[in-house]
Amino acid sequence: MSTTTLPDGAAPEAPVRRLGAWYVAEYRLRAMKAYGWTIVVGGLGSPLLYLLGLGMGLATFIDTPVASGPHGPVDYVVFVAPALLVTAAISVATEEFTYVIMEGFRWRKLFWGVNATPVEPSQLAGGIVIAVLVRMLFTTVAYAVLALAFGALGHPWTVLVLPFVGILGGLAFGLPLMAYSAGLTEDKGQFAIVQRFIFTPMFLFSGTFYPLSTLPGWLHWIGWVSPLWHATQLGRVISYGESEPGWLIAVHVVVLVGLIVGGWLAVRRRFTRRLRA
């Protein structure tokens, strides 16, 4: 038998060299359809609940303004919206970069099947990330649009930018997590630990609901190591012009990009080592 779909002389792996990651992304997006309902309901429902509950409910009890832009204090809902949006992207990351990776390597061994095709381990990892990006984009766009509808954005045009800030935060948390998951050979409840002892404290102590400066100094480090805080602060600067010194904005960007680049390099290395032992 021969490979008959290709013109004579063409390298049989040529299309895969260019598009391997996209084939994987295509597969992952189709697989997500199985839980598409959760994605849509979660993607629309959680912003509705949080924006209504915090913005309309909790905010009515808050007398002191927690934040202000160049034109004076802003509503509480405007303050929390960027944080909630980034949190939503990070939640997607905690779902997609944990169990999906474990399933691929261990539970269903799907990655080993892909490994036998011309698709390289880095393309496999890349395809998974692309598919998660698509899901994150859906989630963050839904968040931004609903935030706009609730009047939770400082400037309406920021609806176009905030989703990408959310994705920065999501990947800055998600890629190192994906590298961690790719190194696990057994599920001993590590993901539940990540959820309870990393995600939840980060969510509570990253200046999400009140400025980081409100916390006692010895808790500030949580914010500084938290991609959620860095992305949220960027989002606040963009949304309503939170006054942040230039050097600190640079730190936010450097930390986020550093985590993304470092995380991706670690992911590639782990995928390759594991699949090509």
Partner: peptide
Amino acid sequence: AQLGVVPQEDNLDGELTARGNLVTYGRYFG
């Protein structure tokens, strides 16, 4: 690209149909 591999442990996608598995896998070969 020119090999067929039947591994010791099946790594089919249990969530997909039999047909879906074949189509999806073919895509990885472009």
